[in-house]
Design a protein around this nucleic acid. Structure first.
Length: 466
RNA sequence: GGCGGCAUAGCCAAGCGGUAAGGCCAGGGACUGCAACUCCCUUACCACCGGUUCGAGUCCGGUUGCCGCCUCCA
Protein backbone atom coordinates (compact mmCIF):
# COMPACT_ATOMS: atom_id res chain seq x y z
CA UNK A 1 0.00 0.00 0.00
CA UNK A 2 1.07 3.57 -0.56
CA UNK A 3 2.14 5.60 2.41
CA UNK A 4 -0.16 8.49 3.21
CA UNK A 5 1.56 11.59 4.54
CA UNK A 6 -0.15 14.55 6.12
CA UNK A 7 1.21 17.49 4.19
CA UNK A 8 1.22 20.79 6.06
CA UNK A 9 1.11 22.57 2.72
CA UNK A 10 -2.34 21.18 1.91
CA UNK A 11 -3.47 20.21 5.41
CA UNK A 12 -4.42 16.83 4.03
CA UNK A 13 -3.13 13.32 3.93
CA UNK A 14 -1.69 12.64 0.50
CA UNK A 15 -0.31 9.48 -1.05
CA UNK A 16 3.45 9.63 -1.01
CA UNK A 17 4.93 9.71 -4.49
CA UNK A 18 8.66 10.39 -4.57
CA UNK A 19 10.29 12.47 -7.26
CA UNK A 20 12.41 9.57 -8.32
CA UNK A 21 10.92 6.10 -8.00
CA UNK A 22 12.29 4.17 -5.08
CA UNK A 23 14.25 7.09 -3.70
CA UNK A 24 13.49 9.63 -1.02
CA UNK A 25 15.23 12.91 -0.39
CA UNK A 26 14.51 14.03 3.11
CA UNK A 27 15.67 17.08 5.03
CA UNK A 28 15.05 17.62 8.72
CA UNK A 29 15.91 20.87 10.43
CA UNK A 30 18.55 20.14 13.01
CA UNK A 31 19.63 21.80 16.23
CA UNK A 32 21.37 25.05 16.97
CA UNK A 33 24.30 23.74 18.91
CA UNK A 34 24.85 25.95 21.92
CA UNK A 35 23.42 23.66 24.58
CA UNK A 36 22.28 20.11 25.20
CA UNK A 37 19.09 19.23 23.38
CA UNK A 38 16.00 18.88 25.54
CA UNK A 39 13.34 16.24 25.18
CA UNK A 40 11.25 18.60 23.11
CA UNK A 41 14.09 18.79 20.62
CA UNK A 42 14.39 15.03 20.78
CA UNK A 43 10.87 14.46 19.49
CA UNK A 44 11.53 15.38 15.84
CA UNK A 45 14.79 13.46 15.94
CA UNK A 46 12.99 10.32 17.10
CA UNK A 47 9.93 10.82 14.91
CA UNK A 48 11.79 11.39 11.67
CA UNK A 49 14.32 8.69 12.44
CA UNK A 50 11.32 6.38 12.65
CA UNK A 51 9.88 7.75 9.43
CA UNK A 52 13.21 7.13 7.77
CA UNK A 53 13.32 3.56 9.12
CA UNK A 54 9.86 2.85 7.84
CA UNK A 55 10.58 4.28 4.40
CA UNK A 56 13.57 1.97 4.25
CA UNK A 57 11.48 -0.92 5.50
CA UNK A 58 9.21 -0.26 2.54
CA UNK A 59 12.19 -0.51 0.26
CA UNK A 60 13.00 3.12 -0.38
CA UNK A 61 16.54 4.30 -0.70
CA UNK A 62 16.47 7.27 1.66
CA UNK A 63 18.90 10.14 1.52
CA UNK A 64 18.45 11.64 4.96
CA UNK A 65 19.93 15.04 5.73
CA UNK A 66 19.89 17.01 8.95
CA UNK A 67 21.85 20.19 9.49
CA UNK A 68 23.69 21.79 12.36
CA UNK A 69 23.26 25.49 12.90
CA UNK A 70 26.71 26.24 14.20
CA UNK A 71 26.73 30.01 14.08
CA UNK A 72 24.02 32.38 15.26
CA UNK A 73 23.21 34.92 17.99
CA UNK A 74 22.57 32.41 20.73
CA UNK A 75 25.76 30.54 20.02
CA UNK A 76 27.81 33.73 20.06
CA UNK A 77 26.17 34.76 23.29
CA UNK A 78 26.77 31.39 24.94
CA UNK A 79 30.40 31.35 23.81
CA UNK A 80 31.01 34.84 25.17
CA UNK A 81 29.46 33.98 28.49
CA UNK A 82 31.75 31.09 29.16
CA UNK A 83 34.73 32.51 27.33
CA UNK A 84 34.99 29.75 24.77
CA UNK A 85 35.63 29.97 21.04
CA UNK A 86 32.48 29.57 18.97
CA UNK A 87 34.03 26.65 17.12
CA UNK A 88 34.97 24.82 20.30
CA UNK A 89 31.56 25.31 21.82
CA UNK A 90 29.71 24.03 18.77
CA UNK A 91 32.08 21.10 18.39
CA UNK A 92 31.38 20.15 21.99
CA UNK A 93 27.62 20.27 21.61
CA UNK A 94 27.63 18.49 18.30
CA UNK A 95 29.41 15.63 20.03
CA UNK A 96 26.88 15.81 22.86
CA UNK A 97 24.06 15.77 20.32
CA UNK A 98 25.33 12.59 18.73
CA UNK A 99 25.76 10.94 22.10
CA UNK A 100 22.20 11.86 23.04
CA UNK A 101 20.53 10.71 19.85
CA UNK A 102 22.51 7.49 19.75
CA UNK A 103 21.24 6.73 23.23
CA UNK A 104 17.75 7.31 21.90
CA UNK A 105 18.31 4.74 19.20
CA UNK A 106 18.55 7.28 16.38
CA UNK A 107 20.97 6.84 13.55
CA UNK A 108 23.15 9.61 12.21
CA UNK A 109 21.88 11.28 9.08
CA UNK A 110 23.58 10.47 5.80
CA UNK A 111 24.76 14.07 5.79
CA UNK A 112 25.04 16.59 8.58
CA UNK A 113 25.89 19.83 6.78
CA UNK A 114 27.09 22.74 8.90
CA UNK A 115 26.48 26.38 8.21
CA UNK A 116 30.11 27.35 8.66
CA UNK A 117 31.10 24.90 5.91
CA UNK A 118 28.70 26.55 3.47
CA UNK A 119 29.32 30.26 3.88
CA UNK A 120 30.52 30.51 0.27
CA UNK A 121 27.39 28.79 -1.03
CA UNK A 122 25.21 30.99 1.11
CA UNK A 123 26.85 34.16 -0.19
CA UNK A 124 26.39 32.99 -3.77
CA UNK A 125 22.77 32.10 -3.11
CA UNK A 126 22.07 35.50 -1.60
CA UNK A 127 23.78 37.12 -4.57
CA UNK A 128 21.34 35.44 -6.92
CA UNK A 129 18.39 36.58 -4.82
CA UNK A 130 19.65 40.15 -4.98
CA UNK A 131 20.13 39.89 -8.75
CA UNK A 132 16.60 38.62 -9.12
CA UNK A 133 15.24 41.47 -7.03
CA UNK A 134 14.17 39.27 -4.14
CA UNK A 135 16.71 40.73 -1.76
CA UNK A 136 18.41 44.01 -1.01
CA UNK A 137 21.41 45.22 0.92
CA UNK A 138 20.85 47.73 3.67
CA UNK A 139 23.63 49.02 5.87
CA UNK A 140 25.69 45.84 5.71
CA UNK A 141 22.66 43.59 6.17
CA UNK A 142 20.83 41.82 3.40
CA UNK A 143 17.08 41.32 3.63
CA UNK A 144 14.59 39.23 1.74
CA UNK A 145 11.90 41.27 0.04
CA UNK A 146 8.94 39.27 1.28
CA UNK A 147 6.25 40.99 -0.73
CA UNK A 148 8.05 40.19 -3.93
CA UNK A 149 7.39 36.47 -3.44
CA UNK A 150 3.85 35.59 -4.50
CA UNK A 151 3.43 32.44 -2.49
CA UNK A 152 4.45 33.96 0.80
CA UNK A 153 2.23 32.53 3.53
CA UNK A 154 1.18 29.41 1.68
CA UNK A 155 2.65 27.04 4.22
CA UNK A 156 1.27 28.73 7.31
CA UNK A 157 -1.91 29.56 5.39
CA UNK A 158 -1.89 33.19 6.20
CA UNK A 159 -2.13 36.14 3.91
CA UNK A 160 0.74 38.51 3.99
CA UNK A 161 -1.43 41.28 5.36
CA UNK A 162 -2.63 39.20 8.27
CA UNK A 163 0.93 38.40 9.10
CA UNK A 164 1.85 42.02 9.05
CA UNK A 165 -0.51 42.80 11.92
CA UNK A 166 1.47 40.58 14.23
CA UNK A 167 4.87 41.55 12.96
CA UNK A 168 7.07 43.68 15.14
CA UNK A 169 9.17 46.46 13.89
CA UNK A 170 12.39 46.83 15.75
CA UNK A 171 13.63 50.34 16.49
CA UNK A 172 16.29 51.45 14.05
CA UNK A 173 15.02 48.92 11.55
CA UNK A 174 16.80 48.82 8.26
CA UNK A 175 14.10 46.81 6.50
CA UNK A 176 11.88 48.11 3.75
CA UNK A 177 8.99 46.17 5.22
CA UNK A 178 8.37 44.73 8.64
CA UNK A 179 7.95 41.25 7.21
CA UNK A 180 11.31 41.22 5.47
CA UNK A 181 13.83 38.98 7.14
CA UNK A 182 17.61 38.90 7.27
CA UNK A 183 19.60 36.78 4.86
CA UNK A 184 22.91 38.27 5.94
CA UNK A 185 23.74 40.09 9.14
CA UNK A 186 26.55 42.61 9.39
CA UNK A 187 29.08 41.67 12.07
CA UNK A 188 29.16 43.57 15.31
CA UNK A 189 32.64 44.39 16.61
CA UNK A 190 34.46 41.29 17.81
CA UNK A 191 31.92 38.85 16.43
CA UNK A 192 32.82 35.87 14.33
CA UNK A 193 32.35 36.89 10.69
CA UNK A 194 33.09 36.18 7.07
CA UNK A 195 33.86 38.56 4.25
CA UNK A 196 31.11 39.13 1.74
CA UNK A 197 30.18 41.59 -1.02
CA UNK A 198 28.19 43.41 1.67
CA UNK A 199 30.98 43.55 4.20
CA UNK A 200 31.92 41.30 7.10
CA UNK A 201 29.02 39.38 8.52
CA UNK A 202 27.31 36.04 8.88
CA UNK A 203 24.23 34.31 7.49
CA UNK A 204 20.74 34.85 8.83
CA UNK A 205 19.00 31.82 10.23
CA UNK A 206 16.65 30.77 7.42
CA UNK A 207 19.02 30.93 4.51
CA UNK A 208 21.19 28.03 5.64
CA UNK A 209 18.53 25.38 5.18
CA UNK A 210 17.62 26.59 1.72
CA UNK A 211 21.25 26.53 0.67
CA UNK A 212 22.34 23.30 2.29
CA UNK A 213 19.25 21.37 1.25
CA UNK A 214 19.98 22.43 -2.31
CA UNK A 215 23.69 21.68 -2.09
CA UNK A 216 23.15 18.20 -0.75
CA UNK A 217 19.82 17.14 -2.20
CA UNK A 218 19.11 19.42 -5.14
CA UNK A 219 16.47 21.99 -6.06
CA UNK A 220 13.45 19.94 -5.08
CA UNK A 221 13.27 17.53 -2.19
CA UNK A 222 10.62 15.00 -1.26
CA UNK A 223 10.11 15.55 2.43
CA UNK A 224 11.04 18.51 4.54
CA UNK A 225 10.36 18.13 8.22
CA UNK A 226 10.69 19.78 11.58
CA UNK A 227 8.84 20.90 14.67
CA UNK A 228 5.54 22.70 14.43
CA UNK A 229 7.13 25.92 15.59
CA UNK A 230 9.25 26.01 12.47
CA UNK A 231 6.26 26.25 10.17
CA UNK A 232 6.32 29.99 10.54
CA UNK A 233 8.49 31.80 9.94
CA UNK A 234 11.37 29.40 9.32
CA UNK A 235 9.90 27.07 6.74
CA UNK A 236 7.81 29.77 5.16
CA UNK A 237 10.99 31.73 4.62
CA UNK A 238 12.85 28.73 3.29
CA UNK A 239 10.17 28.29 0.66
CA UNK A 240 10.39 31.96 -0.28
CA UNK A 241 14.17 31.80 -0.62
CA UNK A 242 14.43 28.49 -2.42
CA UNK A 243 11.57 28.92 -4.83
CA UNK A 244 12.66 32.42 -5.72
CA UNK A 245 16.18 31.14 -6.31
CA UNK A 246 15.46 27.79 -7.99
CA UNK A 247 12.20 28.60 -9.76
CA UNK A 248 11.04 25.18 -8.64
CA UNK A 249 8.97 23.70 -5.87
CA UNK A 250 11.21 23.44 -2.84
CA UNK A 251 9.65 20.46 -1.06
CA UNK A 252 6.72 18.25 -2.04
CA UNK A 253 5.77 17.16 1.46
CA UNK A 254 6.07 19.17 4.64
CA UNK A 255 5.83 17.31 7.92
CA UNK A 256 5.57 18.97 11.30
CA UNK A 257 5.58 17.24 14.64
CA UNK A 258 3.69 18.45 17.72
CA UNK A 259 5.30 19.73 20.87
CA UNK A 260 6.42 18.03 24.00
CA UNK A 261 4.58 19.68 26.87
CA UNK A 262 5.26 19.80 30.55
CA UNK A 263 2.31 20.57 32.80
CA UNK A 264 0.40 21.07 29.59
CA UNK A 265 2.68 23.84 28.43
CA UNK A 266 5.12 23.79 25.59
CA UNK A 267 8.60 22.82 26.65
CA UNK A 268 11.02 25.41 25.39
CA UNK A 269 14.35 26.89 26.09
CA UNK A 270 12.94 30.37 26.41
CA UNK A 271 10.36 29.29 29.00
CA UNK A 272 13.06 27.47 30.90
CA UNK A 273 10.77 24.48 31.56
CA UNK A 274 12.92 21.96 29.79
CA UNK A 275 14.64 18.71 30.64
CA UNK A 276 17.74 17.87 28.68
CA UNK A 277 18.23 14.47 27.14
CA UNK A 278 21.71 14.51 28.63
CA UNK A 279 20.23 14.59 32.15
CA UNK A 280 17.18 12.43 31.72
CA UNK A 281 19.00 9.53 30.17
CA UNK A 282 20.98 9.12 33.37
CA UNK A 283 17.71 8.60 35.19
CA UNK A 284 15.52 6.68 32.81
CA UNK A 285 16.20 4.18 30.07
CA UNK A 286 16.42 6.28 26.89
CA UNK A 287 14.63 3.45 25.10
CA UNK A 288 11.66 4.09 27.39
CA UNK A 289 11.72 7.73 26.37
CA UNK A 290 11.72 6.73 22.73
CA UNK A 291 8.92 4.24 23.25
CA UNK A 292 6.92 6.89 25.08
CA UNK A 293 7.35 9.37 22.23
CA UNK A 294 6.02 6.84 19.76
CA UNK A 295 2.89 5.96 21.73
CA UNK A 296 1.41 9.28 20.62
CA UNK A 297 0.82 10.24 17.02
CA UNK A 298 3.58 12.59 15.94
CA UNK A 299 1.30 15.49 15.08
CA UNK A 300 -0.38 15.55 18.49
CA UNK A 301 1.10 17.22 21.53
CA UNK A 302 2.58 14.88 24.09
CA UNK A 303 2.65 15.61 27.77
CA UNK A 304 5.70 14.58 29.71
CA UNK A 305 5.42 13.48 33.32
CA UNK A 306 6.94 10.93 35.65
CA UNK A 307 3.64 9.01 35.75
CA UNK A 308 3.49 8.59 32.04
CA UNK A 309 7.12 7.48 31.93
CA UNK A 310 6.42 4.89 34.62
CA UNK A 311 3.56 3.55 32.49
CA UNK A 312 5.85 3.41 29.49
CA UNK A 313 8.46 1.52 31.49
CA UNK A 314 5.95 -1.16 32.41
CA UNK A 315 4.57 -1.37 28.91
CA UNK A 316 7.99 -1.72 27.29
CA UNK A 317 8.85 -4.35 29.86
CA UNK A 318 5.87 -6.40 28.73
CA UNK A 319 7.22 -6.38 25.18
CA UNK A 320 10.71 -7.23 26.33
CA UNK A 321 9.43 -10.05 28.49
CA UNK A 322 7.56 -11.53 25.56
CA UNK A 323 10.71 -11.36 23.48
CA UNK A 324 12.89 -12.76 26.22
CA UNK A 325 10.51 -15.64 26.81
CA UNK A 326 10.58 -16.52 23.13
CA UNK A 327 14.36 -16.58 23.20
CA UNK A 328 14.34 -18.76 26.27
CA UNK A 329 11.99 -21.22 24.67
CA UNK A 330 14.01 -21.32 21.49
CA UNK A 331 17.09 -22.25 23.49
CA UNK A 332 15.20 -25.18 24.98
CA UNK A 333 15.40 -26.98 21.64
CA UNK A 334 11.88 -26.48 20.50
CA UNK A 335 9.76 -29.54 20.03
CA UNK A 336 7.78 -30.29 16.97
CA UNK A 337 4.17 -29.40 16.55
CA UNK A 338 1.82 -29.48 13.63
CA UNK A 339 0.05 -26.14 14.01
CA UNK A 340 2.69 -24.05 12.36
CA UNK A 341 0.62 -22.64 9.51
CA UNK A 342 -2.00 -21.13 11.77
CA UNK A 343 0.57 -19.36 13.91
CA UNK A 344 2.67 -18.26 11.00
CA UNK A 345 -0.44 -16.74 9.55
CA UNK A 346 -1.15 -14.88 12.77
CA UNK A 347 2.34 -13.46 12.80
CA UNK A 348 1.83 -12.21 9.29
CA UNK A 349 -1.46 -10.61 10.28
CA UNK A 350 0.17 -8.69 13.10
CA UNK A 351 2.85 -7.53 10.73
CA UNK A 352 0.18 -6.40 8.29
CA UNK A 353 -1.56 -4.43 11.04
CA UNK A 354 1.74 -2.76 11.83
CA UNK A 355 2.26 -1.81 8.20
CA UNK A 356 -1.28 -0.51 7.81
CA UNK A 357 -0.75 1.70 10.83
CA UNK A 358 2.54 3.07 9.56
CA UNK A 359 1.19 3.55 6.06
CA UNK A 360 -1.43 5.82 7.57
CA UNK A 361 0.72 8.88 8.16
CA UNK A 362 3.13 6.98 10.38
CA UNK A 363 0.60 6.14 13.05
CA UNK A 364 3.08 4.75 15.53
CA UNK A 365 0.45 4.53 18.28
CA UNK A 366 -1.35 1.90 16.26
CA UNK A 367 1.90 0.31 15.20
CA UNK A 368 2.77 -0.15 18.85
CA UNK A 369 -0.64 -1.71 19.41
CA UNK A 370 0.23 -4.24 16.69
CA UNK A 371 3.36 -5.08 18.66
CA UNK A 372 1.24 -5.81 21.70
CA UNK A 373 -0.99 -8.03 19.61
CA UNK A 374 2.13 -9.89 18.65
CA UNK A 375 3.12 -10.15 22.31
CA UNK A 376 -0.21 -11.60 23.35
CA UNK A 377 -0.08 -14.06 20.46
CA UNK A 378 3.40 -15.23 21.23
CA UNK A 379 2.68 -15.53 24.95
CA UNK A 380 -0.35 -17.62 24.12
CA UNK A 381 1.73 -19.74 21.82
CA UNK A 382 4.32 -20.23 24.55
CA UNK A 383 1.60 -21.62 26.76
CA UNK A 384 1.33 -24.51 24.34
CA UNK A 385 3.03 -27.68 25.42
CA UNK A 386 4.78 -28.18 22.11
CA UNK A 387 6.30 -25.40 20.12
CA UNK A 388 8.02 -25.37 16.80
CA UNK A 389 11.27 -23.74 16.01
CA UNK A 390 10.13 -22.02 12.86
CA UNK A 391 7.17 -20.47 14.63
CA UNK A 392 9.33 -19.20 17.45
CA UNK A 393 11.72 -17.78 14.91
CA UNK A 394 8.87 -16.17 13.01
CA UNK A 395 7.71 -14.44 16.18
CA UNK A 396 11.21 -13.33 17.04
CA UNK A 397 11.84 -12.18 13.51
CA UNK A 398 8.67 -10.11 13.40
CA UNK A 399 9.35 -8.62 16.80
CA UNK A 400 12.89 -7.72 15.90
CA UNK A 401 12.02 -6.25 12.56
CA UNK A 402 9.00 -4.22 13.61
CA UNK A 403 10.42 -2.98 16.89
CA UNK A 404 13.52 -2.17 14.87
CA UNK A 405 11.52 0.13 12.62
CA UNK A 406 10.43 1.97 15.74
CA UNK A 407 14.05 2.07 16.84
CA UNK A 408 13.34 -0.01 19.89
CA UNK A 409 15.50 -2.91 20.90
CA UNK A 410 13.74 -5.73 22.69
CA UNK A 411 16.95 -7.48 23.55
CA UNK A 412 17.97 -7.03 27.14
CA UNK A 413 21.59 -7.13 28.03
CA UNK A 414 21.26 -9.60 30.87
CA UNK A 415 24.67 -10.86 31.71
CA UNK A 416 24.98 -14.49 32.55
CA UNK A 417 24.52 -15.27 36.19
CA UNK A 418 27.75 -16.10 37.96
CA UNK A 419 28.63 -19.61 38.99
CA UNK A 420 27.45 -18.80 42.45
CA UNK A 421 24.01 -17.91 41.15
CA UNK A 422 23.93 -21.01 38.99
CA UNK A 423 24.77 -23.12 42.00
CA UNK A 424 22.00 -21.52 44.05
CA UNK A 425 19.47 -22.11 41.31
CA UNK A 426 20.54 -25.72 41.09
CA UNK A 427 20.33 -26.08 44.85
CA UNK A 428 16.84 -24.61 44.84
CA UNK A 429 15.75 -27.03 42.15
CA UNK A 430 17.02 -29.87 44.27
CA UNK A 431 15.21 -28.52 47.32
CA UNK A 432 11.99 -28.18 45.36
CA UNK A 433 12.27 -31.72 44.15
CA UNK A 434 12.56 -32.77 47.78
CA UNK A 435 9.66 -30.52 48.66
CA UNK A 436 11.91 -28.49 50.91
CA UNK A 437 10.05 -25.29 50.06
CA UNK A 438 11.45 -23.42 52.99
CA UNK A 439 14.98 -23.68 51.62
CA UNK A 440 13.76 -23.11 48.05
CA UNK A 441 12.01 -19.89 49.02
CA UNK A 442 15.00 -18.81 51.04
CA UNK A 443 17.16 -19.03 47.94
CA UNK A 444 14.58 -17.28 45.80
CA UNK A 445 14.33 -14.43 48.31
CA UNK A 446 18.08 -14.22 48.55
CA UNK A 447 18.44 -13.87 44.77
CA UNK A 448 15.57 -11.40 44.69
CA UNK A 449 17.44 -9.22 47.16
CA UNK A 450 20.24 -9.19 44.60
CA UNK A 451 17.85 -8.14 41.90
CA UNK A 452 17.41 -11.52 40.28
CA UNK A 453 13.86 -12.68 39.71
CA UNK A 454 13.25 -16.37 39.14
CA UNK A 455 10.50 -17.73 36.97
CA UNK A 456 9.71 -21.43 37.03
CA UNK A 457 8.51 -22.73 33.70
CA UNK A 458 7.75 -26.11 32.30
CA UNK A 459 10.99 -25.83 30.38
CA UNK A 460 13.07 -25.01 33.41
CA UNK A 461 14.04 -22.02 35.52
CA UNK A 462 14.16 -18.70 33.81
CA UNK A 463 15.55 -15.62 35.48
CA UNK A 464 15.76 -11.91 34.85
CA UNK A 465 17.05 -8.76 36.42
CA UNK A 466 14.39 -6.92 38.37
C1' G B 1 -6.77 41.14 16.58
C1' G B 2 -5.39 37.11 12.61
C1' C B 3 -4.42 31.81 11.89
C1' G B 4 -4.51 26.85 13.87
C1' G B 5 -4.99 22.57 17.22
C1' C B 6 -7.22 19.79 21.13
C1' A B 7 -11.39 17.97 24.65
C1' U B 8 -12.51 9.68 24.29
C1' A B 9 -12.60 4.92 30.79
C1' G B 10 -8.82 6.05 37.29
C1' C B 11 -4.33 7.46 34.00
C1' C B 12 -1.97 7.46 28.90
C1' A B 13 -3.88 6.95 23.96
C1' A B 14 -5.89 5.22 18.77
C1' G B 15 -10.23 5.87 16.01
C1' C B 16 -12.16 10.76 11.54
C1' G B 17 -19.88 8.20 9.02
C1' G B 18 -21.89 2.07 10.49
C1' U B 19 -23.27 0.60 17.21
C1' A B 20 -15.66 2.46 21.06
C1' A B 21 -7.83 -0.39 19.23
C1' G B 22 -3.79 -0.79 22.47
C1' G B 23 -1.04 0.18 27.07
C1' C B 24 -0.69 1.29 32.48
C1' C B 25 -3.23 0.75 37.04
C1' A B 26 -7.23 -1.97 39.78
C1' G B 27 -10.57 -6.26 40.81
C1' G B 28 -11.88 -11.56 39.82
C1' G B 29 -10.40 -16.43 37.83
C1' A B 30 -6.71 -20.15 35.72
C1' C B 31 -1.58 -21.90 36.06
C1' U B 32 2.06 -22.63 40.55
C1' G B 33 4.01 -26.06 46.55
C1' C B 34 3.64 -20.63 47.22
C1' A B 35 5.24 -16.95 43.91
C1' A B 36 6.96 -14.86 39.36
C1' C B 37 5.92 -15.06 34.09
C1' U B 38 1.64 -15.92 31.22
C1' C B 39 -3.52 -16.58 29.82
C1' C B 40 -8.94 -15.52 30.47
C1' C B 41 -12.77 -12.18 32.43
C1' U B 42 -14.50 -7.15 34.40
C1' U B 43 -14.37 -1.33 33.94
C1' A B 44 -16.61 4.48 28.44
C1' C B 45 -24.07 7.38 27.92
C1' C B 46 -16.68 9.72 23.42
C1' A B 47 -16.86 18.36 27.15
C1' C B 48 -21.89 20.71 26.43
C1' C B 49 -26.15 22.42 23.13
C1' G B 50 -28.40 22.22 18.43
C1' G B 51 -28.37 20.33 13.21
C1' U B 52 -27.43 16.97 8.74
C1' U B 53 -28.04 11.50 8.09
C1' C B 54 -31.37 5.23 7.94
C1' G B 55 -27.03 5.76 11.12
C1' A B 56 -22.12 10.69 14.26
C1' G B 57 -16.53 10.64 19.17
C1' U B 58 -16.41 10.67 13.62
C1' C B 59 -19.68 15.91 9.29
C1' C B 60 -22.00 21.23 10.06
C1' G B 61 -23.23 25.44 13.51
C1' G B 62 -22.85 27.31 18.42
C1' U B 63 -21.10 27.20 23.78
C1' U B 64 -17.42 26.24 27.47
C1' G B 65 -12.42 24.95 28.71
C1' C B 66 -7.32 24.14 27.51
C1' C B 67 -3.01 24.79 24.14
C1' G B 68 -0.07 26.76 20.14
C1' C B 69 1.77 30.10 16.05
C1' C B 70 1.82 35.27 14.46
C1' U B 71 8.94 37.09 18.16
C1' C B 72 14.37 33.10 19.17
C1' C B 73 12.31 28.13 19.59
C1' A B 74 11.97 21.09 17.66
Amino acid sequence: MTIQIFNTLTRKKEPFVPIEEGKVKMYVCGPTVYNYIHIGNARPVIVYDTVRNYLEYKGYDVHFVSNFTDVDDKIIKAANEIGEEVGELTERFIAAYFADIEALGCRHADDHPRVTDHIRDIIDFIGVLIDKGYAYESGGDVYYRTRKFDGYGKLSQQSIDELKVGARIQPGEKKEDALDFALWKAAKPGEISWESPWGAGRPGWHIECSVMAREVLGDTIDIHAGGQDLTFPHHENEIAQSEAHNDKTFANYWMHNGYVNIDNEKMSKSLGNFITVHDIRQKIDPQVLRYFMLTVHYRNPINFSSEVIADAENALERLRTAYRNLMFRLEQTADNGDQADIWLHKVREAQKAFEDAMDDDFNTANAVAALFDLARLSNTYLNEKNTQKDVLQAFLGAFGKLAGVLGISLETADELPGEEVDALIAEREEARKNRDFKRADEIRDHLLSQGIILEDTRQGVRWKRG
